[in-house]
Computed example of a mutant assay.
Amino acid sequence: MRLFKELKQSMANDWGGSKPPAAEEDKEFLEKKDKINELEQQIINASQQAETLVKAQQDMGETMGELGLAFIKLTKFENEQAVFSSQRVRAADMKGLATAAVKASRFYRELNAQTVKHLDTLHEYLGLMLSVHGAFSDRSSSLLTVQTLLSELSSLQSRAEKLEAASSKIFGGDKSRLRKLEELKETIRATEDAKNVAIREYERIKENNRTELERFDQERRADFLNMLKGFVVGQVGYAEKIANVWTKVVEETNGYANDST
């Protein structure tokens, strides 16, 4: 019965022209709720871009690995088929290029593993959003229960007043109506008790929401800061390692540049 009554109250809230007997008036909470929804969308967008970045780094690592393998095979062919010593020299240089490509491939794989580790914070917070929305839903359900009981209590009191007024018009009273009135008053007392319990539960959930949202904001700032620090340090560190690999190749093959000039 309570379920059907709350469903009726929910429809009245959505479609009725009158204001519900109790409404969410915590402006600070409503503002935070809107910001949480906006944050969730931003995290979804960032998560999608993170997946694109991880895929690009993975592709680069695989491409570098395949390039290194191709040059290793070419080096082997040149050594086996070499007629002139210059061919062996070029084969040695190609081997250095192959080694550099394989090292770069390994660095890209290591970088990608770190990137996934740090940016996985975005996915974790997407999971937390489910809990946050669950807490908001509990609050809405609790408020709906309060609204339903207030509406029910108002209806019962109105019925009692009408019944009491009708009974007073009959000399000596109407025993049947008086009995119904007593039963109605008992129902009113029980509904009043239920309303008080529902209000206390709603206030408990409101306080819990407040403290949990404060904790969520603090932890989010710390987690996102650590995520960004780790991501940037990883990108810079491995960019330097990969640059050093190719710098060495440039130095070893510098003679070809001099020949072309």
Rank of each mutant, 00 (worst) to 15 (best):
residue 248 K to M: 06
residue 38 E to H: 06
residue 234 G to K: 03
residue 172 G to A: 05
residue 15 W to R: 07
residue 49 Q to F: 11
residue 123 H to Q: 14
residue 61 G to W: 01
residue 167 S to F: 05
residue 200 R to Q: 02
residue 47 S to Q: 11
residue 218 Q to H: 11
residue 15 W to I: 11
residue 4 F to Q: 11
residue 251 E to D: 14
residue 185 K to N: 13
residue 214 E to C: 02
residue 205 I to L: 00
residue 181 L to I: 01
residue 194 A to K: 13
residue 168 S to V: 14
residue 108 Y to P: 02
residue 61 G to A: 01
residue 93 D to Q: 06
residue 171 F to Y: 12
residue 234 G to Q: 05
residue 218 Q to M: 07
residue 70 A to G: 01
residue 148 T to D: 05
residue 125 Y to H: 07
residue 149 L to G: 03
residue 238 Y to T: 10
residue 23 A to G: 04
residue 121 T to W: 03
residue 29 F to H: 12
residue 249 V to S: 01
residue 210 R to E: 02
residue 60 M to S: 14
residue 69 L to V: 08
residue 103 K to H: 09
residue 18 S to P: 06
residue 243 A to G: 06
residue 153 L to H: 07
residue 29 F to Q: 08
residue 206 K to I: 08
residue 67 L to A: 01
residue 14 D to L: 08
residue 193 D to F: 05
residue 208 N to A: 08
residue 27 K to Y: 10
residue 61 G to M: 00
residue 62 E to I: 00
residue 185 K to S: 02
residue 4 F to D: 09
residue 137 S to K: 15
residue 102 V to R: 00
residue 48 Q to V: 12
residue 44 I to W: 07
residue 109 R to W: 08
residue 38 E to P: 03
residue 70 A to P: 01
residue 15 W to M: 08
residue 249 V to R: 02
residue 40 E to H: 08
residue 243 A to F: 06
residue 161 E to M: 14
residue 28 E to P: 06
residue 23 A to Q: 11
residue 137 S to I: 09
residue 10 S to K: 13
residue 20 P to N: 04
residue 143 L to R: 11
residue 72 I to E: 02
residue 91 A to Y: 02
residue 140 S to L: 12
residue 222 A to C: 01
residue 7 L to M: 11
residue 76 K to T: 09
residue 198 A to P: 00
residue 140 S to F: 09
residue 212 E to W: 11
residue 154 S to T: 13
residue 35 K to R: 14
residue 124 E to Q: 15
residue 152 E to I: 04
residue 204 R to P: 01
residue 64 M to N: 04
residue 122 L to S: 06
residue 38 E to K: 12
residue 105 S to Q: 03
residue 211 T to F: 07
residue 205 I to G: 00
residue 85 S to P: 09
residue 167 S to N: 15
residue 46 A to P: 06
residue 223 D to T: 05
residue 35 K to M: 14
residue 200 R to M: 00
residue 113 A to P: 02
residue 123 H to K: 15
residue 12 A to S: 09
residue 241 K to R: 04
residue 39 L to T: 09
residue 160 A to R: 10
residue 92 A to S: 04
residue 163 L to W: 13
residue 177 R to M: 15
residue 64 M to Q: 05
residue 112 N to K: 03
residue 27 K to N: 12
residue 229 K to C: 10
residue 113 A to Q: 13
residue 106 R to I: 09
residue 116 V to I: 13
residue 197 V to N: 08
residue 194 A to G: 05
residue 234 G to D: 07
residue 164 E to L: 14
residue 19 K to L: 13
residue 169 K to F: 05
residue 242 I to E: 03
residue 109 R to D: 13
residue 165 A to S: 15
residue 199 I to Q: 01
residue 25 E to D: 14
residue 116 V to P: 05
residue 254 N to G: 14
residue 134 G to M: 01
residue 33 K to H: 15
residue 8 K to G: 02
residue 234 G to V: 04
residue 46 A to K: 10
residue 129 M to F: 13
residue 50 A to P: 10
residue 10 S to H: 13
residue 194 A to S: 15
residue 150 L to D: 08
residue 126 L to W: 04
residue 61 G to H: 02
residue 81 Q to T: 08
residue 118 H to K: 10
residue 107 F to Y: 14
residue 171 F to D: 15
residue 78 E to I: 10
residue 176 S to P: 07
residue 123 H to I: 10
residue 37 N to Q: 13
residue 225 L to P: 00
residue 23 A to C: 07
residue 161 E to T: 15
residue 30 L to C: 04
residue 211 T to E: 10
